[in-house]
């Protein structure tokens, strides 16, 4: 069964094709990486998958069910968790409260006016924070966290509704090298233990080639290559447009 099936997705902004006929599938319990230069359309692609942006053309299926144009909150209820390139957390709350809000939403208790929210789902929240290694910072104000910790908090929040698909936009940006490896190992464990499928974008090629099952390359809105990490690494076109280095040494000669 495929977790996500994406067909001929297109999106233009002011006449510019940000995403141009992108089609791919995300298999169950697969760790799929989407790479490409900045501005290639990765974030737009992500935003269409979780419903933040409505595609001009194309369909998105989640376990066979058409979710094209479904708003983010409904996509989430269908079991799609999301982390953002620029972390989106609740700055006026503690780390624990951030997770509690997600849990309250998952259990559909956010309309309640009477109970004290801080006392609800503490254990579940703690368990999720423990999972991402943030348990010791549970009481801290979210606004005082380091960037890498915010990323881990986002992961805990994204896991609150026991998602079947995780969309992670540059999950390790801003983290120290060891932290990156740890986070990706953790993600791989979650994929294995909970049967989650993960699609992620990333600029760190160590992370991509070290952890992804499969890699897709996006350039100027189009998918230009796709395959196992070693295939993509060896692809001449990908080296040219993204992995680079060869092109730059050419500049030395002309300068």
């Amino acid at each position: 069964m495929t977790a996500l099936q994406v067909d001929t997705l297109c999106k233009s902004f002011g006449g510019v094709r940000a995403v141009d006929e992108v089609s791919f599938t995300l298999g169950e319990t697969e760790l799929l990486a989407l790479i490409g230069p900045n501005g290639a359309g990765k974030s737009t692609c992500f935003n269409m998958l979780n419903g933040q942006i409505r595609p001009d053309v194309g369909t998105i299926r989640l376990f066979g069910r058409d979710i094209t144009g479904t708003p983010p909150r409904a996509v989430w209820r269908l079991g799609v968790g999301r982390t953002f390139q620029i972390t989106a957390t609740f700055g006026s709350m503690t780390v624990m409260e951030n997770v509690q809000v997600a849990l309250l939403s998952h259990h559909r208790r956010l309309r309640a006016l009477i109970p004290y929210a801080g006392a609800l789902y503490r254990d579940e929240a703690m368990a999720l924070l423990d999972l991402v290694g943030m348990a010791d910072q549970a009481a801290r104000a979210c606004g005082t966290l380091a960037y890498g910790d915010l990323k881990r908090l986002e992961l805990a929040v994204a896991l609150a509704n026991e998602p079947r698909v995780l969309l992670m936009d540059e999950p390790t940006a801003g983290m120290a090298p060891q932290e990156r490896v740890q986070l990706m190992r953790l993600t791989a464990d979650i994929v294995r233990d909970k049967g989650v499928s993960v699609l992620f974008t990333e600029h760190d090629m160590d992370v991509v080639f070290g952890h992804a099952d499969r890699v897709m390359v996006l350039d100027r809105g189009r998918l230009v290559a796709e395959g196992t990490p070693s295939e993509v690494r060896a692809n001449a076109e990908v080296q040219q447009i993204y992995l680079g280095s060869g092109a730059l040494y050419g500049a030395e000669a002309s300068a």
Partner: peptide, 17 residues
């Protein structure tokens, strides 16, 4: 050079030099 196509990065390098 962030987020620029390699061709543009080359031009950028020339300009900086």
């Amino acid at each position: 050079s962030e987020g620029l196509a390699p061709r543009i990065v080359e031009q950028m390098a020339q300009a900086l030099i």
